[in-house]
Structure formats: structure tokens, C-alpha cells
């Protein structure tokens, strides 16, 4: 694995305990190995972007970080606690440290925008209705959405859904934010606007961020470090400016958007 020798501004020091430590993570589905021994440290306060082709195991990896999928082997350690060993209560407590934004938003379609964002607040806090409303407005302002509180999910555009998903993810002021393909399927202008919101959150909120995407432009905009996942393994991790200079042929093909001769990933 290639690691940057230089330390950018937001990349923490080596002595710092990782916020999330992924140790030898293996996962297979119906005999097909999707993750093959991933080792990765995610440091407090950094924005790590995981890139990779379709079927490389990005989404599966992200879901392991929050315990939505249990590994066949290996560990995910969050603030020193192993998600796989934690009992249900501890697991729920660890999950409260996370906010996750899903690919299509995964908003509850039986609720309007306001209730979607208020949902975790009502569920996990004893905030008064007034405070909930204020927090919902604050979260919507952070993602540059105003006046959509009473809209239903099916009345929102793709970009708006993602941003409402972001607002819901940050409602409980989580320590870790996970983004699953935040701008897939969006036009370049909307995708750039989504990236801008993520960068603002990165700069203004005290969070550790993990984003998965296959869009290199987006990765360069929002990442402190970029990790390349290929065939269930981490191929390289480096800050954006160094990542683009890595000599690995697969990475260069990925950056240039050219076909790679031995690409067998697109099966999942």
C-alpha cells in the first residue's frame, strides 16, 4: 500500500488513535469474495474518500463501518470498541456516533421533509417541539435548503433528496459522517453543488467523514486522503495531489477514464 510521506494540514499524526480502525476485513456473498482482507485507519477529523470501480466492494465496505453488515472475518473498531463483538445495546450506542447519507437519500416516503429530519431527534432526544423545529431549520440551512419542510419526498428532485439526506444525517450532530455515492446520477452542476455542501460540512463541523464515490473530480474536491479499493482490497491511500501522481497502471486508467485490460470487477 502506498502512503503519503508528507502530512497535509488535516491529516492527523501517526500517534493519534484512529477514529475507525479496519483490521483484516473479509466478506463474501454466495461464495464470491467482495472484501479480501482490508486494513485501513480512519483518523479523527479527516475526510477520507474511497474510490473504486463498480463492484469493487465500496458500498459493502461502508456498511461494515456502521455495522449494517457483519464481516466474515476481521474487525471494525470505532473509538476502541469492536462493532462485531458489541452486544445490541453497545452496537446501538456506537451507531449513534454515526450519521449516514444513502445513495438515493433513503428518506422515509411516508413522512414529509420536516418529519424525516426530525425523526432521529424525536427518537433519541427529549428536545421540545420548538427546539426540534429550530434544529431542523438549522440542518436544512446547512445544506442550503429553505422552504421545503412541508414537501413530500416524491416532490423533491434527486439533488434535493441527497441534501435532505445530509440534513437528516447531521441532525444529531454525529462524530462520523458516511456518504454513499453522494452525487451518482446527478448532472455535473448539481453534483458540484452537492460537493460544495460536503466541503462546507467538512470545514464547519467537527466530524470525521468517509465518502465512497467513483467520481474522481468529486473525490479531489472533498478528500483529505483518497483510498483506492480494487477487487476487495485497498490498492493505495494518499492525499489527493499525490494520489493523481501514483504510478499504478490501474489508478492511472481510472483517473484517465480509460479501459483497463484486466478489469474483472464489474460483476457485482
Amino acid at each position: 500500500m502506498m502512503e503519503s510521506p508528507t502530512t497535509p494540514v488535516r491529516t492527523p499524526t501517526a500517534e493519534m488513535r484512529p477514529k475507525i480502525a479496519v483490521i483484516n476485513l473479509w466478506k463474501s456473498f454466495q461464495g464470491k469474495e467482495v472484501l479480501r482482507g482490508i486494513n485501513l485507519d480512519i483518523h479523527p477529523g479527516e475526510s477520507l474518500v474511497i474510490v473504486g470501480g463498480s463492484g469493487a466492494g465500496k458500498s459493502v465496505f461502508l456498511k461494515h463501518l456502521i455495522g449494517l453488515i457483519q464481516p466474515d472475518r476481521g474487525h471494525v473498531i470505532v473509538d476502541g470498541e469492536d462493532l462485531a463483538c458489541a452486544d445490541t445495546g453497545v452496537c446501538l450506542a456506537i451507531r449513534r456516533k454515526f450519521g449516514m447519507s444513502f445513495q438515493e437519500g433513503a428518506l422515509f416516503d411516508s413522512m414529509n421533509v420536516f418529519d424525516n429530519i426530525a425523526f432521529p431527534l424525536r427518537r433519541h432526544t427529549r428536545m421540545s417541539p420548538g427546539d426540534v423545529a429550530a434544529r431542523v431549520r438549522e440542518c436544512l440551512a446547512l445544506v442550503h435548503l429553505d422552504g421545503v419542510e412541508h414537501k413530500w419526498v416524491n416532490e423533491l428532485s434527486g439533488g434535493m433528496r441527497r441534501r435532505v439526506g445530509f440534513a437528516r444525517a447531521i441532525a444529531l450532530a454525529p462524530e462520523i459522517l458516511l456518504f454513499d455515492e453522494p452525487n451518482t446520477g446527478l448532472d455535473p452542476i448539481t453534483a458540484a453543488a452537492i460537493d460544495r455542501v460536503i466541503v462546507e460540512m467538512r470545514d464547519n463541523l467537527p466530524v470525521t467523514m468517509v465518502t465512497i464515490t467513483h467520481d474522481m473530480k468529486s473525490a479531489q474536491r472533498i478528500a483529505d486522503r483518497i483510498a483506492m479499493l480494487r477487487a476487495g482490497q485497498i490498492l493505495a491511500v494518499a492525499p489527493p495531489d499525490e494520489f493523481v501522481r501514483l504510478s499504478d497502471r490501474y489508478i492511472q486508467s481510472f483517473l484517465a477514464g480509460e479501459p483497463y485490460p484486466d478489469n474483472h470487477e464489474e460483476v457485482a
Binding site: 455495522g67 449494517l68 454515526f98 449516514m100 438515493e104 422515509f108 432521529p120 444529531l172
Partner: peptide
Amino acid sequence: VTEQIDALQAMAVE
């Protein structure tokens, strides 16, 4: 299939 159940879990709701 629309990941709403995953979203619940991600929000620490069983």
C-alpha cells in the same frame, strides 16, 4: 429495497 430499513439502523433505531 430503497434502503429505508438500513437508514433506520444507521440512525440507531432497531
